[in-house]
């Protein structure tokens, strides 16, 4: 395979992957799934079943639900919607990086000001990813409403 073929192959594969989206009906399924997980998390918080592995599973499930919502198409998926989605992903990515940079500093400040110990699980991949997905969904809905 020569260089041109490799470039062409890379380009077409990236184009194909970047256009991956779920059908519109997945959006409502994702919302219901996230809602169920959210309610179940609250219920389990007050029960003795609240073990580490249950929390781990619920966090993963919530991330999957949010990802499904973020990847679902609109009823009319035209070029403006594609542009708004790209904007919302860009904003969410930038804010998530800023969040990841600032959050540990906030933790240190809180520790110094209030003397509250920093828990080892206070900052995790779940926080950053859920923040990013929620921000993306929120920005996309706001941009869509104000278009």
């Amino acid at each position: 395979m020569n260089a041109k073929k490799i470039i062409k192959c890379e380009r077409s594969k990236i184009e194909k992957w970047s256009q991956f989206q779920l059908n519109n009906h997945w959006k409502i399924k994702g919302i219901i799934f996230c809602f169920i997980i959210f309610v179940a998390t609250i219920v389990l918080k007050f029960n003795e079943v609240n073990t580490e592995w249950v929390r781990f599973g619920f966090r993963k499930a919530l991330l999957v639900g949010l990802l499904v919502i973020a990847l679902s198409k609109e009823k009319t998926e035209d070029e403006m919607i594609v542009s708004l989605r790209a904007k919302s992903f860009r904003l969410a990515f930038i804010l998530a990086v800023l969040y990841a940079l600032i959050q540990p500093i906030v933790d240190v400040l809180v520790f110094n000001l209030l003397g509250k110990p920093i828990s080892s699980s206070s900052f995790s991949y779940f926080q950053v990813l859920s923040f990013m997905l929620i921000i993306q969904i929120m920005f996309f809905e706001v941009l869509k409403r104000n278009r």
Binding site: T76, D78, E79, M80, I81, S83, R147
Partner: peptide, 15 residues
């Protein structure tokens, strides 16, 4: 083949 809101945005020079 677009949404009504897209036409509205184009007319208003927002898109």
């Amino acid at each position: 083949g677009v949404s009504r809101q897209t036409i509205n945005s184009i007319e208003a020079n927002r898109y």
